[in-house]
C-alpha cells in the first residue's frame, strides 16, 4: 500500500483559508491528505505549535499566509516566515528533514494556488516518506 502522508496546514483566515474555501467552490481536486487549522493571522503561529505537530505524528506541516506586504496585521506573515525558518533549524538539529515544514503565501483569490500547494506538499512529503518519528513508532508496534 502506498504511503499516504498526513499533512497539517495552519491557514490565515483572510487568505489561505478563504483560498481553500474558493478551491472548494471551484470544485478543484486536491489530495485529501491535508487538515486545516484556521488562524486569525499566521503571525499567531507559535513555534511550539509547529514542533508539537511533528511530535503528534504529522508527516508534514505548512503555514499559509497572505502575500508578502499584504498582511492584515502588517507583518504577521513575515514573522510567521521567520518562525518557520527557526523551527526548520530545530528539526534539522534532531535529524528530521526540514523540508517537511514550509511557509506559503497566497491571496484569498488564489483557490488554484491553494490546491497546487496541497498537491506540492503532499508529493514532497510522499517522496520523503513517513516522518522518522512515525516510522520509528510503527516498527516498535510491529515488534510488540
Amino acid at each position: 500500500m502506498e504511503f499516504e502522508p498526513k499533512i497539517l496546514a495552519f491557514c490565515c483566515q483572510f487568505c489561505a483559508y478563504s483560498a481553500a474555501d474558493l478551491a472548494g467552490s471551484m470544485r478543484l481536486q486536491y489530495p485529501p491528505n491535508v487538515r486545516i487549522i484556521r488562524l486569525l493571522c499566521t503571525g499567531k503561529v507559535d513555534p511550539l505549535h509547529l514542533l508539537k505537530a511533528f511530535q503528534e505524528g504529522w508527516d508534514g506541516v505548512f503555514v499559509a499566509g497572505c502575500l508578502e506586504g499584504e498582511c492584515h496585521f502588517l507583518q504577521g506573515n513575515l514573522h510567521a516566515k521567520q518562525w518557520v525558518n527557526y523551527v526548520k533549524k530545530l528539526l534539522k538539529e534532531i535529524k528530521i528533514e526540514p523540508e517537511r515544514l514550509e511557509m506559503f503565501n497566497m491571496s484569498a483569490a488564489m483557490g488554484t494556488r491553494f490546491a497546487d500547494t496541497v498537491r506540492e506538499m503532499t508529493e514532497r512529503v510522499r517522496k520523503l516518506g513517513p516522518s522518522p518519528l512515525n516510522s520509528h513508532r510503527v516498527t516498535e508496534n510491529t515488534e510488540k
Binding site: 514542533l51 511533528f54 534532531i94 535529524k95
Partner: peptide
C-alpha cells in the same frame, strides 16, 4: 516548552 519537545523527539528518534 520548545526544548522539552525537541529533546523528547530527539531521544525517541
Amino acid at each position: 516548552g520548545l526544548l522539552a519537545t525537541e529533546l523528547a523527539m530527539a531521544f525517541e528518534l
